[in-house]
Design a protein around this nucleic acid. Structure first.
Lengths: 193, 193, 193, 193
DNA sequence: AATGAATGAGCCTTCATTCAT
DNA sequence: AATGAATGAAGGCTCATTCAT
């Protein structure tokens, strides 16, 4: 790999990070190429050296976001409930700045549902599979109630996560969100034991 | 003596319904006044006789949607868990066409979070209050566990609803969604008893 | 003349007066048919019963303005200088409301020069002829210096009137305008004696 | 390394000159961005690279016009009457093409009076101050009658200039306008001696 | 005669994208 | 590789005008 290529990759990443910034500020509706360029003090035509068009830039940025920023590192040693706990802790302790970053999630859903970000489904699927597998292992290990349907259970638990995260973005009432998360956890624990 | 008279309110409603149609097809990003006009076989300037501008039309349409289409009729005789049941039943038995309508919800969230539909918060708040009050009454009547914090509980339950509905729109796997809803209901029941 | 026709004429006049009102408020650039209709609490299509189109309405209104409101009654008994005096007196003693009316003059010039009000030239010509004839009579009567070229003199005197009137509309410094008029009159008197 | 470089100021000036051209042909009412673009064989969006909007372009053009084209260079060595002479000479010897340019003056007045060109007042004021100062100096030097009120006098003399210029635009009778100017000059000279 | 209702024509403005340097 | 400069395409909105009642 030549140093030029590394630079190229670096620049691409910088543009993507600026794109995520703009998305979290203006959303994908208000998103403009020029805003990204301005944020990086570069001409907007330069962006076209790295991405074929706006759609391409958005897709790459959302993909990057999911991989690098949003998706928690998976940990095979954790049980299902431990992983939930860890994720919740991570969300709850987010700083103001990090919270703003979650706004991009809305755009991911929005673009995904409208068919403009086809990878969303794939990512979501992968994460679900991971959690389902984990839950099944817990069932095998006798940690959780074996009569629970893993697919159905993981789906609504994931949905609750999405829903509460959105609430976190709408209201900024962090204490209430915390209590909601704990109430949710308690219900889960009671259900799966 | 009297010129052509049209029921102003009726026409407004027709335009709003067409707007909701367009929103469910293209989302608010791709929304164009001309699409609404075409759908109604009218000139686009006619729209401006009934709404001051695009923003106004969108707001009025989303508001109408929430009031008339989405919000289930509240029923004071229902207990909290009965109301949940009823709402779920309503969602699950939706036809394909009705499902498409739920896509507008995404736009409502999207616009709401981005501050372009300020009424969303108000609607959400009202609905939450209604459910919280109901839950408290159930607590007083000894139907549900009195140690549960109503605000926190209702928040995450509502979030789960939002999340599952989104999943319904993304995957079209209705049987799975049904199972998820039932799994969710079971967990709730176990938690609140 | 049937009573109907009289009513028709009355209404036409009402529309014209409203038009002049709107012109004095918004100028001809900002002039809209709807403003006239609103001022009279009538539908805008009604105006098309009395005038073939916007251009027609404007022309008729400007013509009316010149004939009824702006042009001072001519008085054959007055000498040239007496007529000047009288006109100045009339302008200077105008109330605030009357002053606003003079703003229409700007539109008359504007439309006239741009060829959209062809009658302006004719009116101007007539007034000039009247003043030139008067000046010549004064010369014959030995009241004023016979070596002065009447056409040239009347042209610039008229121009001065126009110019000062415009100044009156721009600055609202009536005392200064008064002094200017008197200074102008003194110069005229000295010149023609 | 360096992309196409255009002198930004030069281009801006070219656009302004084309704007003045269009204004002298159509007036500000009929003024359209596309006319300017066509005259320069450029796309209309290019204009927006140099001016924020139509209003901005108009303002800048009128300002440029006053500064570069209309306002005569002031000359401190000239007496008041010499300056008048010089200005008149300049107007009278204007070619057909130059005359057309004066049509923009009408728009300046029109826009100024309607409050759409606020700089007009400032320009007018400055020019008046300059002439008043000059006149006062002449009074101190014993060249002109010291009993004349400079403010009042300069106001009506300026107004006469404006008025005659307008006449020059309406009638194209240059010989008559010349005679009018000379008649005016004679009157001034007699008055101030 | 009066006017609600509808609309086509037209202009302003934005923005993604291309191109020449 | 980087980017000033240019622009086509598209959509929002206004307003004069027409038409049916």
């Amino acid at each position: 790999v030549s140093p030029k290529l590394v630079n190229h990759q670096d620049k691409k990443e910088k543009i993507i990070l600026a794109t995520i910034d703009v998305l979290s500020e203006k959303g994908s509706t208000g998103f403009r190429i020029i805003d990204v360029a301005n944020k990086l003090n570069m001409g907007k035509s330069t962006i076209y050296e790295y991405f074929v068009n706006k759609q391409d830039l958005l897709e790459k940025a959302l993909e990057y976001y999911l991989l690098e920023i949003y998706l928690p590192e998976t940990n095979d040693n954790y049980s299902f409930i431990e992983e939930l706990n860890s994720t919740i802790e991570q969300i709850i302790t987010s700083s103001e700045v990090d919270l703003k970053k979650y706004l991009v999630l809305i755009d991911i859903f929005y673009q995904g549902i409208n068919g403009d970000f086809s990878k969303m489904d794939q990512f979501y699927q992968e994460y679900m599979s991971y959690m389902i597998k984990k839950f099944k292992k817990d069932q095998e290990n006798g940690l959780v109630n074996p009569s629970i349907d893993p697919e159905a259970f993981v789906l609504w638990v994931g949905a609750t996560f999405d829903g509460i995260t959105v609430q976190l973005l709408v209201k900024k009432d962090l204490p209430l969100i915390k209590k909601a998360f704990y109430s949710f956890l308690k219900a889960i624990k009671k259900y799966i034991e």
